[in-house]
Computed example of a mutant assay.
Amino acid sequence: MNLKGKRALITGGSSGIGMAIAEAMLSKGAKVVISARRQGVLATAVEMLSKTGPVQGVAADVATEEGRAKMLAVANEKLGGLDVLVNNAGGVRAGRLEETSEADIRTMIEVDLVAPIMLTRAALPLLRASGDGMVVNVTSGIALVAAPFYGTYAAVKAGLAKFGESLRRELKNEGVHVMTVYPGATETPMMASNRAGPELGFTREPASAVADATIAGMEEASFEVIRGGEARTKMIALNRENPGALDKRFADLKPALLLAVRDHSAL
């Protein structure tokens, strides 16, 4: 896909990976609408991004039907249509399952899985009308190799990845491509309450690196973008060929990992 002139809606675009993708797309000549729940943070992001290219903001909650409808209405009005939908908004709550509240579990399911499915469903008529449309689903490396204390988050991100795979095949040769992004640990506000470092498998990279890889994948119409380099590739292979070995590795890390991630919350 040539991003010049393309019209994009990016959920969760006021910070982190979403904002980095917005900036990268603007630098390629795209026109962008970003969404976020908090008006103040959104306004600051729009002001910063406007230095790079034409951007609009819409304050709306992706977890609600009304919020999703508002996003699409604003994108259609301001951009005159839609070529790219980036499902980036998400939330996380780590910790032992029995110590995670039902409310937090349901929020992750609604925001990380139900919302992008429903928003994509509602956006498809606009994306089809584009003739050169794309859906980008931002999941997580945990969808490929699930870590302890992230049970619900791993489930919803893996679900979003398989949703994208199925939809890609459903829409093949119909003018809409679907790509899945698997970021590793990334320096974002969402990761601020996670104290796990490289010794526990959380080697962080800047959001701009994820965005640049995402843009390259979009331009090449890739099926997926997996971050984490050779180490991630080896873990994925080991998880497939000898999952028990990873179980043992995680078992050795569990006490320290729980201490590091038990306060990890961004909902």
Rank of each mutant, 00 (worst) to 15 (best):
K70H: 09
T152H: 07
G53R: 06
G91F: 04
G133V: 03
L144V: 05
A256D: 15
N137L: 03
A237I: 13
A245T: 12
D104H: 12
G40R: 12
A115V: 02
Y150Q: 14
E187V: 13
A158Q: 11
V33E: 02
L127K: 02
A89D: 03
N88P: 08
F250K: 06
G90D: 05
G57F: 06
E65Y: 02
M118G: 01
L253I: 09
K254T: 12
A266V: 10
E205R: 13
G95S: 05
R128G: 02
K6I: 07
A45V: 01
L79P: 08
E98W: 14
L97C: 06
M25I: 06
A209I: 11
N88H: 04
D212S: 14
N194E: 09
G164A: 09
A192E: 15
T203M: 10
N137H: 05
E241L: 13
V261C: 04
N2F: 05
R232Y: 09
G95N: 07
I109T: 11
T11N: 09
M19V: 01
A146S: 15
D61C: 03
G12E: 06
S130I: 03
A122E: 14
G131Y: 08
I117E: 02
V74K: 11
M48Y: 10
T11W: 06
E230P: 06
F149C: 05
V32M: 10
M1G: 12
S27M: 13
V114F: 10
A30K: 02
A155N: 04
A73T: 11
L259K: 15
D61H: 04
G90R: 03
K234E: 15
V156K: 02
M190Y: 06
G184R: 05
A266K: 07
K157F: 06
A43N: 15
K70M: 09
A36G: 12
L9E: 00
V136C: 06
G5V: 10
K28Y: 03
S140C: 09
A22L: 08
G164W: 00
S130L: 10
T152E: 07
V62F: 02
E47H: 12
L3E: 02
D132I: 00
A73G: 12
I21V: 15
V138Y: 04
A221R: 15
L246Q: 10
A231K: 15
G141N: 07
G91S: 13
L126Y: 12
N76Q: 15
A123E: 01
A266F: 15
A63C: 11
L79E: 04
G229L: 08
R227A: 13
H177F: 04
V181R: 03
I34C: 04
I117C: 11
K70W: 00
A89C: 05
I105P: 07
G175A: 09
V62R: 03
V86C: 02
R204C: 09
A147N: 11
S15R: 15
S222P: 03
L160N: 00
N2R: 14
A59D: 05
G91L: 01
N88I: 02
P54F: 05
A63F: 01
A63L: 01
S35H: 01
L267Q: 12
M191R: 12
V74S: 07
E102W: 12
G53Y: 08
